[in-house]
Design a protein around this nucleic acid. Structure first.
Length: 796
DNA sequence: CAGTGAGCGAGCTTCCGCTTGACTT
């Protein structure tokens, strides 16, 4: 029996540490927090100094009972959770829940998982820091109060099941605000002048700093340049250097993996978790850019042996982030001499990124020589500028170049870093070609998942462990969608001077196309506006920073945590109550104008089933004429839809003809345009406009769909036509009414009987919840089903 | 999933931060 029990948060960490400590120590993991506030309303007694009710959640019961048993047998228990607010609270919860004794409990901390760091920690134990614990309790209680008082206000005033919180509501606000900036943005056009001098390999580009907003000015400039002399007026060469970026934190890893590998933040974290569990990288949820001494030495050794002494440069990075808690190291390879690892291709690629970034962070800077040539024009006062760059020493660029968000692509294109041929002052240049191209100013960029994380981190909102889940939450609630949207064709003008002639051309480009960007939905915008109107303090971008400051004061023992909560809660709770009493229901209603034919009012708002258009006033006692309704399509929004677009929606659904004695209708559903016929549905291909579908086309599509379905069919049954055995993308499955049932490997789909199918369908768990963080025992499954049946019965 | 847009009104939903497995139409 080991004399010592040491408890850390992560099982992978426990395994490593056990190896360092030998037989006297058993090292176990708590798997994060082991207790949480109870789910019910009475979790916090606000009238009684915010007394909390905690419970061990079902999925933690086993961990807790095992730890309890081991703690009882051990002579000394070492609480080694992370050294930050949450970690201190975990230690305290362990102390309370496991029934530990002061005399036989020690609290230790370390920032890196290396043998010397652990041994040093064991030599310098301390007690649980209750100030830090109180700061965590204040954080936990505040988040619960905000979330569980604000969300019900939304259920009453907007729609059931919505949510609000200190972190998610600000994330949504950022996206809503950005979308409105983009909608408001007025693009300005101006002509940009680019000249090409010299021939072949000696050719280079020069630009005019000024731009012309009028075409005639640009044209005048070009015509002035006909036959003009171009001389190098000045030539300046300056050394320049570039330094490597710090090694990865969670947020920078998410950003680079998104830009360079195209991973979503959730994917990045899944892959990183695997790399961590296989022992290839250090912990992946961190806000620290710090590397341990051991790591610095290992990196040095690797750089020197692979690239030479010249490439190594010892560097210490400091976090710029005030909210960072730095309980861990930066994300780095565990062994720098492993340039690649075993694993699937996504693991290999992410590992390579991490390895390069960490290695580069300890390498010397890259050195350049930047040349700027100013070129005079004999017929004009302006001058052209040519920039060239020559790399003198590659330094860290040998392994890694950080990428940038593509916000200002206009300024960095056109050979900004190209090489210049050898030039001398006073040299006369031969103009090859000069062009004036119409360019447009660009609206601010929409957020990607990763750039939203970056922004949240800058604002100090959220933590490394919550960035990915927060992004999922705001999408799951329907506040935000990640989408691809088509751009618009835009015309632009190009004037080209070649020889003595100016050629004018009209060209087109596609602009505004987006891939994988975050768009607010109407419900997201309405919820946001409601919160901004009634709870501006909470969704203020600085709210978290201001409460964090107070948590810090609590942690330093300068402030009493319940006093802080009183100061926050009393006014907040009053706001909640008065909002419930006085606020109107929020629907985002907007009047678009009058119907051009009958003058009826046309308005848009969100309803139970999403955004829709209404023509005519709602029915009242005097007015019994019913209004007409139509749902908005994907990508349309009540904020931006025009009167014309709204009227278009009433052209569908439309009867396009008859087939086999039943009508065929074209309509638009959640997944796009479709034809319905005899309770069967066929999606319309993209290239067919739903308004122009002919009877013949519709019949053709229906028959094509039937043929395809027949090919998928393996067998059907006389007992019940609703039950079929089909061939799907992932192999054969049974379609049992609306339920899809996977066929076990030991059964042959060809010989399945109806009874076997029924048995398989019955064996499916009805309450199976999807999702990574789904809780199994969250609701009584029986409660939901009858409620839905009732609603359905109601309709008839 | 699929054209609706009232309301008899039960009982439900919801936060942020720590951690992993089991699961995938």
């Amino acid at each position: 029996m080991a004399k010592n029990l040491l408890i850390v948060e992560s099982p992978a960490k426990a395994k490593t540490i056990e190896g360092y400590l030998g037989k006297d120590f058993t090292v176990k993991s708590s798997y994060g927090h082991i207790r949480d506030l109870v789910k019910s309303e009475d979790a916090i007694d606000t009238a009684n100094n915010f007394t909390q009710k905690y419970e061990v959640p079902a999925d933690k019961k086993q961990v807790v009972s095992e730890l309890k048993k081991l703690a009882k047998e051990a002579e000394m228990v070492w609480l080694a959770s992370d050294e930050d607010r949450e970690g201190e609270a975990i230690s305290w919860h362990l102390f309370e829940t496991l029934g530990l004794k002061d005399a036989t409990t020690k609290r230790i901390v370390f920032h890196e998982i290396t043998k010397p760091a652990i041994l040093k920690a064991i030599d310098t134990p301390r007690k649980i820091d209750y100030n830090l614990v109180n700061a965590q309790q204040a954080r936990r209680v505040l988040d619960r109060l905000v979330g569980f008082e604000l969300s019900p206000v939304l259920w009453k005033k907007v729609k059931p099941s919505l949510s609000a919180g200190r972190v998610q509501s600000v994330a949504v606000r950022l996206i809503v605000d950005r979308e409105r900036e983009i909608n408001k943005f007025k693009s300005e056009a101006a002509f940009k002048i680019v000249a090409i001098f010299g021939k072949g390999k000696e050719a280079f580009k020069a630009e005019l700093a000024e731009r012309f907003s009028k075409q005639e000015d640009a044209e005048k400039f070009l015509s002035d340049c006909i036959g003009a002399d171009f001389d190098i007026r000045s030539l300046e060469t300056k050394p320049a250097k570039r330094s490597p970026a710090a090694p990865f934190t969670t947020s920078t890893l998410q950003q680079e993996a998104s830009r360079k590998l195209g991973y979503s933040v959730a994917r990045t974290m899944q892959v990183a978790q695997k790399l961590y569990e296989s022992g290839n990288i250090t912990y992946m949820r961190t806000d620290s850019v710090n590397l341990s001494e051991t790591a610095l030495n290992a990196a040095q050794q690797e750089i020197v042996s692979a690239y030479g002494e010249k490439y190594h440069q010892h560097r210490k990075y400091k976090t710029k982030n005030a909210s960072a808690q730095e309980a861990h190291e930066a994300i780095r390879p565990t062994y720098f001499n492993n340039h690649t690892i075993d694993g699937d291709s996504s693991e290999k690629r992410l590992y390579e990124l991490i390895w390069k970034r960490a290695i580069a962070s300890q390498m010397s800077e890259a050195q350049f020589e930047k040349t700027t040539a100013k070129i005079s024009i004999s017929s004009r006062r302006e001058e052209l500028t040519a920039n060239g760059e020559v790399m003198k020493f590659d330094g860290f660029l040998k392994v890694y170049l950080e990428s940038a968000d593509d916000e200002e692509e206009d300024t960095q294109q056109d050979g900004e870093n190209a090489m210049l041929p050898p030039l001398t002052k006073g040299q006369r240049l031969a103009l090859q070609e000069m062009s004036a191209t119409e360019r447009f100013s660009r609206p601010p960029a929409r957020y990607t998942e990763a750039s939203l994380v970056k922004k949240l981190e800058e604002l100090g909102i959220g933590r490394p462990s919550t960035y990915a889940p927060t992004i999922s939450t705001i999408q799951n609630r329907g506040y935000v969608v990640k989408e691809e949207r088509e751009g618009k064709i835009r015309n632009f003008r190009v004037l080209t001077l070649k020889g003595d002639a100016i050629v004018k051309e009209n060209k087109t480009e596609n602009t505004g196309a987006e891939r994988g960007k975050l768009f607010p939905t109407d419900i997201g915008a309405v919820v946001n506006d409601f919160l901004v109107q009634y709870f501006n303090d909470i969704v203020d971008f600085h709210f978290t920073a201001s409460v964090e400051k107070q948590f810090d004061e609590i942690a330093q023992g300068l402030k009493e945590w319940t006093a802080m909560l009183h100061d926050f809660y009393n006014p907040f709770h009053k706001e909640v109550q008065s909002t419930i009493e006085t606020a109107d229901k929020a629907t985002g209603e907007r009047e678009l104008g009058a119907h051009p034919e009958n003058g009826k009012k046309i308005s848009v708002r969100i309803g139970r089933y999403g955004p829709f258009v209404q023509v005519g006033d709602s029915a009242t006692e005097e007015n019994d004429e019913k209004p007409l309704y139509a749902s908005l399509r994907n990508g349309q929004s009540i904020e931006t839809i025009s009167l014309e677009e709204a009227l278009e929606l009433f052209k569908l659904p439309k009867v396009v003809g008859e087939y086999e004695g039943k009508v065929m209708k074209v309509a638009i559903g959640r997944f796009g345009p479709y034809i319905s016929h005899n309770s069967a549905f066929v999606s319309l291909p993209k290239e067919i406009d739903p308004l122009d579908v002919t009877e013949e086309q519709a019949i053709e599509l229906i028959n094509a769909k039937r043929k395809k379905d027949a090919e998928k069919l393996i067998k059907s049954f006389d007992e019940d036509p609703e039950v079929k055995v089909l061939n799907g993308r992932w192999g054969p499955y049974i379609e049992f009414g609306k339920l899809n049932v996977k066929i076990p490997k030991d059964k042959d789909p060809l010989t399945l009987t109806y009874q076997e199918c029924k048995a398989l369908a019955d064996a499916m768990p009805k309450d199976a919840k999807k999702g990574r963080f789904g809780k199994a025992a969250s609701a009584k499954p029986a409660a939901k089903a009858p409620a839905k049946k009732k609603a359905a019965a109601k309709k008839k």
